[in-house]
Design a protein around this nucleic acid. Sequence first.
DNA 1: AAATATACTTACTTACTAGTAAGTAAGGAA
DNA 2: TTCCTTACTTACTAGTAAGTAAGTATATTT
Lengths: 203, 203
Amino acid sequence: MPSSTKPATRTEIVELADQLIRLKGFNAFSYADIAGIMDVRNAAIHYHFPSKADLGISVIGEELKRVAAGRQDWAHLPGDEQIKRIMQGFFDKSRKGMICLTGSLTPDYETFSPEMQHKLVEMCEAILDWVAYCLEKGREERTLHFHGRARDRALLVLSAMLSSLLLSRVLGNNVFDRMMDQLLKDLGTSPAKWVEKSPDWLL
Amino acid sequence: MPSSTKPATRTEIVELADQLIRLKGFNAFSYADIAGIMDVRNAAIHYHFPSKADLGISVIGEELKRVAAGRQDWAHLPGDEQIKRIMQGFFDKSRKGMICLTGSLTPDYETFSPEMQHKLVEMCEAILDWVAYCLEKGREERTLHFHGRARDRALLVLSAMLSSLLLSRVLGNNVFDRMMDQLLKDLGTSPAKWVEKSPDWLL
DNA sequence: AAATATACTTACTTACTAGTAAGTAAGGAA
DNA sequence: TTCCTTACTTACTAGTAAGTAAGTATATTT
């Protein structure tokens, strides 16, 4: 099982799979899609990821790493600021017509292997944990205001971020802005300004 | 094109498709699944629904009928009561391990035919309209309390209902109850009690 | 220099996908 | 009685899915 040697191809496969999952869903993309873009054969992907579940688990694993890195890198920031930065990440995806992994993968949960289901649960809980931590931090800092448990509030916040991507793709981009504005107002903090980052392919 | 004659088979196909979409997603079920359950041949389904998109459009069409019927039948009820009944509908689905059509179909939006995409937009807007109407009604009746436009608030309410099904399947059933409790508290109304209906196959 | 591991390709299998063409039994209308 | 429609079945096509076995070039280790 290759894991730590030449990472170029392997990494590109995972990145492409991530994009395809966010665009079309796990059950709607195939190894052929990735192979076509990378100009390698189908079997090259099977070499790195014997089964599609292996690939899915790796995609989720990378997201878990990003969550862990975000928690570390932004640990010094106030809770409300962290929440707004997480939202900015969602904004970036929405402007590329992409949805979040939670919104893409949870609907297909029943079609996954037990291992992939477990990994998905792990991811959802990690994200929820982070959001709950930010909310509680913001409440202690008196910049965020809400009643009830931080964990329960995190469910509603994550819910809104997740759905804003689903619904803005269907009903128009302004849905994202409207929902996030309302959400931040509910939390008693100032609305954020979403910065339109230049797309990757321009850099 | 058959549409108004003997409806037994046709109706059963649409009902099964609806269940399969809510369980596994549109791209994860096949005509063979339905044919297997009904003990008819694949082609029988193609007779009623030449393409899979036709079937999808019919499933969405039935949901639109249910929304229209719900608006009519419950028109005499107060806004907060209507909201709670809509939530009860979501509760019923959640206890069957099913998600809502919006949560199942919007992630796969990009893989649909233009006609099916359009029908899905129609459905999302119809549901949103209804929720917004209930919220505004409840606000006028002074049983629901929120700031901002009813339409924007409806986005957050629909968002929470949608996600509660996605997340409770992954994180456990109590997620639904926790989210709906918080949501109703935010709207300044009393929490609802979800009645566990006996499953269809017992009646 | 020989052996081994890595990262593939070529060529293939099995299973399933949506979709179609042609035939047929049953019922109603002309 | 004949004709036509409805509601299928049987038998098929063409394409795609995930997955595999065997071979190969290149780099690394012994």
